[in-house]
Amino acid sequence: MASDDGDPLETGQPPDGDAHRARLPIQTVRELYEVHSRELLAFLVGVLRDGHAADEVAQAAFARLMEVGHEARAETIKGWLFKVGFHEAMAFRRRQALQGKTLKNYTVRRDPLLANETVHDELVRREDVAKLKELLAELPPDQQHVVRQRMYEGKTFAVIADELNVPLGTVLTRMRLAMEKLQKWWKRDAYPT
């Protein structure tokens, strides 16, 4: 961030000094939204485990971008945006805790990932599903089995290990090997840098 007088993103106060520069043009905000909104949304779903909440927080992050985004350097704008999103997500958690929803849900035994339909559509591309199905079929059966049990049946690794009568480490290794292969494809073909 450009300001040394306290991070305006965290304080929510108008920046001082040269921070009185003009806000980011709407067109710039729109372009940043096009480029980063999906990834930010996915990140926030991971932090909050709730599509509705993540959507709300992502909107708040972009609202902050419009207010004080001109304080950030262009080359670090993505990191800036994610940092704001993370802080907004933490604030959201605290509000939830104050409203009676225990923080323990987030920190100890986290709820399963929740995505409303809109968020799911935003994050899941049909062509990615087709490709991933092909890759899944190429995995060894023991890895496919663990992926299915964890991702679809929703069983924990400990339960899967118990059912297969194998050590927990074996199940984790199978899952890890499967995810490595899928992630390599992801990095290479789906979302190359």
Binding site: E39, V124, R148, Q183
Partner: peptide
């Protein structure tokens, strides 16, 4: 942060893909 975002998207896609794939028994373990 990017790793978390990628993990979320991959998880969602996997959930759809796995639901649509034939069940494979764990021969090696059973």
């Amino acid at each position: 942060c990017e790793a978390v975002a990628a993990a979320v998207r991959l998880t969602f896609i996997l959930q759809v893909a796995v639901a649509d794939s034939p069940v494979v028994p764990a021969f090696a373990t059973n």
